[in-house]
Amino acid sequence: MRLLWGFIHVLCALLAAVGTVFLVVGLKEVWRASRTRRWPTAPGKVISTEELQHLRKVPSEEGGGTRLLYEALVHYEYTVGRVLIGSTRVRVSPTATGSEARSQAVLARYPPGQELRVFYNPGDPTESVLEPGAHPLDFLRAGVGGALLFMAVAAQFVVRWFSARL
């Protein structure tokens, strides 16, 4: 019986470690994305748009095979000082999605020729985004990490409760 409880404790520790890593990385991404709201802006113009399709392998644990992802690329140029810079980054987080409709919605917001405000990193003006701030999907990794960490802690309490009654 002690071996079983020991195994459960090790399993909970691993779950807590993975959850902590996901939580820290997720919060770091959210912080990085939210920081873009304070970046200065520069005038820009959409040059062209396109939708890329990627085939991604799905791990065998998730059923295997491949999955089609859609990515909206918005080619735009902006000027910082006297330097013309080009980019395709819409936001800090990746824009690849399994929904063609979401990808098309991004492309519809940025028709070629449209004048816009580009948010750029003052420390590295070549880093820019069109949609600053954290978006709902940016919180996903942090949420998964928090959930894993909660499950690990809750499982420890359940194990202690059961072991006290045996």
Rank of each mutant, 00 (worst) to 15 (best):
Val118Ser: 12
Tyr78Glu: 08
Ile85Cys: 02
Tyr120Pro: 03
Tyr110Ala: 00
His75Ile: 06
Val106Leu: 12
Glu77Arg: 15
Glu77Leu: 10
Leu116Gln: 02
Leu116Phe: 04
Glu100Asp: 12
Thr79Gln: 13
Tyr110Ile: 07
Gly86Ala: 14
Glu115Asp: 14
Tyr110Leu: 07
Val90Met: 02
Tyr120Cys: 02
Val80Trp: 01
Val106Pro: 01
Thr95Gly: 08
Thr88Lys: 11
Pro112Ala: 01
Val118Trp: 00
Val118His: 04
Arg91Asn: 08
Pro111Thr: 05
Arg102Val: 11
Ala101Trp: 04
Thr95Phe: 11
Tyr110Asp: 01
Arg117Val: 05
Arg109His: 02
Ala101Pro: 06
Tyr110Gln: 07
Thr97Tyr: 08
Leu107Glu: 00
Thr79Arg: 13
Thr79Lys: 10
His75Asp: 11
Thr79Phe: 08
Thr79Glu: 10
Ser99Pro: 10
Gly113Val: 12
Ser93Gly: 15
Arg102His: 15
Pro94Ser: 15
Pro112Leu: 08
Ile85His: 03
Val80Arg: 01
Leu107Phe: 13
Pro112Lys: 09
Arg89Val: 02
Arg91Trp: 04
Thr88Glu: 14
Gly81His: 08
Thr97Asn: 07
Arg91Met: 12
Ile85Gln: 00
His75Trp: 10
Glu77Asn: 13
Tyr76Arg: 08
Thr97Gln: 05
